[in-house]
Amino acid sequence: MRVVVLLGGDSEERDVSLASGAQVANGLRSMGHDVLSLDPTCGLLELDQEENLLKGTISQLPPVGVHNTDSSMRVLEHLSQLRAADIVFPVLHGGIGENGTIQAVLDFLGIPYVGSDMLGCALSMNKDATKRLLRASNIFTPDWVLASTIDEVMRALSFPVICKPVDGGSSVGITLVTNEEALRKCFDPEQMKGRTLMCETFVPGRELTVGVVGEETLPIGEIIVSGEIFDYECKYRPEMADEIFPAELDGSVTAMVSRIALEVHRALGLRDLSRIDFILDRNGKLWCLEANSLPGMTTNSLLPKAAESAGFSFGEFCERLLVIAMKRNKKNS
């Protein structure tokens, strides 16, 4: 198949997106597909640029000035390549790639793509919207508050709490807060960078993650961190966390976690792929933390690790996602 992989972009998750996209493109080529890599911020990537990305030697920051451009519109500069493709594979983490903007553009143009549509992406990207839908679906999620002041948090929740941007990803900006002084730092304008902050009750327990592919769950993973929480550093520095696939769980617990992961996937209207994150507390109660419509796709990311546990090579897994998306598009056309 002729595939355009979208990667990079200008969000704070650009580094992760470049790494994910380059590896997806490489994996698809290993399966015999004709692949172009397109960065909405900088344009088409040459093969030597992709190779440098795979080696980790290319600059991972956009050129000066591009942050003020509308990357979703820059995609249109390459409309001929997009229309010539059999399918587009978005691997744009954060920003326009994960909040539904790119998906809306592709839908408007009638171009098929892998992954959730505009609504599913928007709902899962906004953690407040996600949690409201989870509560409406009778799925447990920790108490939370969208707050613009410290007093709002203090009135609604008790320490410890987790503070994070309401629309962030890759664990960027997540902080475990145990006292008022630490909470005050989270509300520093430079720290917030104009974004809305969500605070939620910290639930101690085992951190579990479940990949959903099509309408099936992959083997459940457990994340054991060296620190207190699975933040950005833990996620992308291998020595900071152990990621165990499959997690050592009783059969009944495995069935429960897999079932609820599918319920979350469906409640948010997600499709093709997602990763659902949970805490299993000391009493055996399962709390959904969030859903990821476009999880990391490096060979070391959680979703590909779950796929490897299920017997897929990285290339086979990427191709599986293409096949699922193509079948869905043919069914709906």
Score class of each variant (00 low, 15 high):
Ala247Leu: 10
Thr130Gln: 09
Ile111Cys: 04
Phe108Glu: 13
Glu308Phe: 14
Asn283Met: 13
Leu302Glu: 04
Gly284Ala: 05
Met73Cys: 14
Cys288Arg: 04
Arg14Thr: 07
Glu243Asn: 08
Asp10Trp: 12
Phe108Pro: 05
Met154Glu: 15
Leu322Arg: 03
Thr175Lys: 15
Ala291Ser: 11
Asp250Gly: 12
Pro160Val: 04
Gly227His: 08
Pro62His: 07
Ala19Met: 14
Leu47Val: 10
Cys199Met: 05
Phe278Thr: 01
Ile244Pro: 02
Val253Leu: 12
Lys55His: 14
Glu207Ile: 07
Thr178Phe: 14
Pro40Glu: 06
Leu197Asn: 02
Gly227Ser: 10
Arg195Glu: 12
Glu200Ala: 01
Thr130Cys: 10
Met1Val: 04
Lys285Val: 09
Ser59Gly: 14
Asp167His: 12
Cys163Val: 10
Leu176Phe: 07
Glu243Trp: 00
Lys235Asp: 08
Leu6Lys: 00
Ala19Cys: 12
Leu106Trp: 00
Leu176Arg: 13
Asp167Pro: 00
Pro219Asn: 11
Phe278Trp: 01
Ser313Val: 07
Met73Lys: 15
Glu12Ser: 13
Pro90Ile: 01
Ile174Tyr: 04
Glu181His: 08
Val177Trp: 03
Arg328Asn: 11
Val323Arg: 15
Val91Ser: 05
Val105Leu: 09
Leu262Phe: 03
Glu215Pro: 06
Leu36Arg: 11
Cys234Ile: 00
Ala291Leu: 02
Ser309Trp: 10
